[in-house]
Write a protein that binds this DNA or RNA. Sequence first.
DNA 1: GCCAACGTTGGC
DNA 2: GCCAACGTTGGC
Length: 150
Amino acid sequence: MAKEYWLLKSEPTSYSIDDFAKDKVTEWTGIRNYQARNFINNMKKGDPVLIYHSSCEVTGVYGVGEVVSGPLPDPTQFDVKDSHFDPKATKEKPIWFMVKVSFKKKLKNPVTLTHIKRSPTLSKMIVAKQGSRLSIQPVSMPHFDEIVKG
DNA sequence: GCCAACGTTGGC
DNA sequence: GCCAACGTTGGC
């Protein structure tokens, strides 16, 4: 199957691109939105991802990673002490999923949301739409390429 | 920190 | 199954 491209949001105060660069591989946990979950279930090993930072001084795409696992049960749903704990989830019937993602690179110049919104092509991205709260989004190949080479 | 936009919950 | 109330997200 052909590769698909994705955008993953995080807040740099909780997980920044520099944390990711240091970790090399991370489990992308804590997704608690049904639409985002459906996207996780479509993610495959080898799919490239953009790392987007929200709720910070300059919002935008800061780096690139790659999916290195299929969808796996998100362990934080079983952890009572975790803020993402979900009492309705059981090990037999997990509700929430995650993928493992490996760090590829940090963009020399982050592609800011301002830039994305101004660009006639990139402004078609979901992230540019008003009130878009999806923390995992599909990205088209041309959009992905334009951001990475940008 | 504000607040608009959005998703989810729960009463009916 | 509707929809108001509520909580959360995220740009500014």
